[in-house]
Design a protein around this nucleic acid. Structure first.
Lengths: 220, 220
DNA sequence: AAAAATTTTTAGATTTACCTAAAAATAAAC
DNA sequence: GTTTATTTTTAGGTAAATCTAAAAATTTTT
């Protein structure tokens, strides 16, 4: 049994490990809004419990137990997000903080029934895959919008940033999940991207384009 | 803002105050499965925060702020219980522990939307009233089954014990909310009560009869 | 009302998750 | 390959919520 805090560390390490192989102390500290010294303390504790492998000064990796625990928390988080959006009519930019709390409720039965109630969804409101009760989920083959070439097209299937500000911005631009887009131009000056969206030409900044995930459906 | 633990103390004090006027340290300790010394510590803290009035050796009472906070937690607990039973098909004896965790999720928006989603229920699965968002709820006029006289009848509208064992037992006997009963006899020997339930005669122990709440609808 | 029993509080420790400041290890720059 | 910069760890400390054991206050009994 893990504490609320231990669960948050495992989840953070899991997410960081999606991007870099060995997860560094400072990266964890930054992500968790805490100090590196605190991270070192907790890492030792998690290592003692067999949830992470840890070599001093070399960062951490999750053990299988640790990863399973992390995936279970991610599963809960994403199921709750679906609940909040589908059933309680929250918008996709409003769910993160509440799900952050709900993910720690400890009841296997609750989550299985919630999953069923929601119709066993495969993705959360941001397009992130929801692990099944055995922790399995499809590796998603996304490409960042910024990486598309002129003439490439595809469907918006995810975002790699969950901040309310970013999501609200996308909403305003009409860039929501499922929308078809085609890259019509890339500006040399600032790297901003011109795209066709529902027959209209719009311009999005490089920063925005970096965080939109596309399932590509054909090149020029 | 209160901690998880402070919230539990306030809720416990609130419930104890429903039965006795001034709430004693030992009673709180027993209810919360902790030691009297720990209770004293916490009471001081709650008094400093203006949530309880406290005179040494004289027990505590909730201040208005304290009571409002407690009622809000009770509201959340009962709404979550309705959710679990109505939407996720939990049985009435399975919801208490999970609701005990869910009640601490801090989001006003969440609870208002949940309330709406559930159709603004007035009572939880055990018949306990659910305070509205302003903390108001009808004072229920229940009478304990044990207090009925031979020939009295009424409807089961609540229970004063939420243990799974007790609720499962009631379920097995068919003594669920909304059922009509009439007292046909009281046994001198052990105080057990004979009742008519759906045309059948059944015998229930004094202990069980003490914890069934009836809205009386007429005397003999 | 004095003695006994109970209840409550104080005093001093423990555990968890933090912190700051300084030391040690590693990585980067010259 | 030293020096410098960065990262990470250690050492020592704090606050929250708990504990045990002993002291103090209150209540009950005789």
């Amino acid at each position: 049994m893990q504490s609320y805090t231990e669960e948050n560390y495992l989840k953070t390490i899991y997410h960081l490990a999606e991007q870099t192989t060995n997860v560094q102390t400072n990266a964890i500290a930054e992500q968790m809004q805490t100090k590196p010294a605190s991270v070192t303390d907790m890492i030792k504790k998690l290592a003692d419990k067999g949830l992470v492998d840890y070599i001093k000064y070399q960062g951490v990796t999750l053990t299988e137990t640790g990863r399973n625990t992390a995936i279970d928390i991610v599963r809960k988080h994403r199921l709750w997000e679906v609940f909040l959006v589908d059933k309680l009519n929250f918008k996709w930019d409003e769910v993160h903080d509440v799900a952050e709390e709900l993910e720690h409720i400890k009841s296997v039965e609750l989550i299985e029934r919630l999953d069923e109630f929601l119709g066993f969804p495969k993705a959360d409101p941001h397009g992130d895959p929801i692990p099944d009760k055995n922790g399995r989920f499809a590796k998603t083959q996304f490409i960042k919008l910024i990486e598309l070439k002129i003439g490439d097209s595809g469907t918006i299937t995810g975002v790699s940033q969950h901040s309310s500000a970013f999501l609200k911005h996308l909403e305003k631009l009409g860039l929501t999940l499922g929308k078809q887009i085609e890259v019509s131009d890339v500006t040399d000056f600032d790297g901003s991207v011109e795209i066709m969206l529902s027959g209209k030409q719009i311009n999005i900044s490089r920063e925005v384009a970096k965080h939109i995930l596309i399932s590509s459906n054909g090149k020029n």
